[in-house]
Amino acid sequence: MEKKTYIQAFCTIENNKIVLNGETVFESENTGFADFSKKAYQHFEIGYPKFFKMDNLSKLAFLGSELLLKAQNPNDENNTALLFANKSSSLDTDVKYQNSISDKENYFPSPAVFVYTLANICLGEISIRHQLKSENSFFIFDAFNAAFMADYANILIETQKAKNVLCGWTEFFGEDYKAFLYLVGNEGAIENTKQNLEILYNK
């Protein structure tokens, strides 16, 4: 890769806490993700009722992207690609959906649940919210793959498929979750490298 790209902002969501660029911006008591995500939604005055229709994975990805894209210049937005990955795909919702079809006597598959049994739906939610008609892709790895994420974001920018890339590791299964999202562009202080991503991810 000839051209360097940079991490412009980053955000971690785990253990009922949201940390933006190293600073805790929201924290709540341990009352489960549903309650935590609702309180965060209220705290940041998001005002987007569709949020409550989303599954947990989408809520997690949505909250992180909300904080990172809010500060962006609106003219750049349409050229911000989405590059997301996780370990458990949409399995959290898959299990919920499977339960709705496992009992033949009480068999009522829900279309509103089924639609979220695809990991990339969260990219659709973010794209709709921020009107990002841009490159997007969802990948699955056993664990956060910093090398791949750094390479692929660089490729998107270097080949001019996008000006910026919103990257995210958004893992959700059961009550275990961790989101690490960051915005990559041509300028910034932290170089978008495997090493730097690993440091920020493990912070």
Binding site: F108, P109, S110, P111, A112, V115
Partner: peptide
């Protein structure tokens, strides 16, 4: 449209 489909399930269920 997804809500409409969900209402169809509600009628059935």
């Amino acid at each position: 449209s997804i809500d409409a489909l969900e209402l169809i399930v509600l009628l059935d269920k």
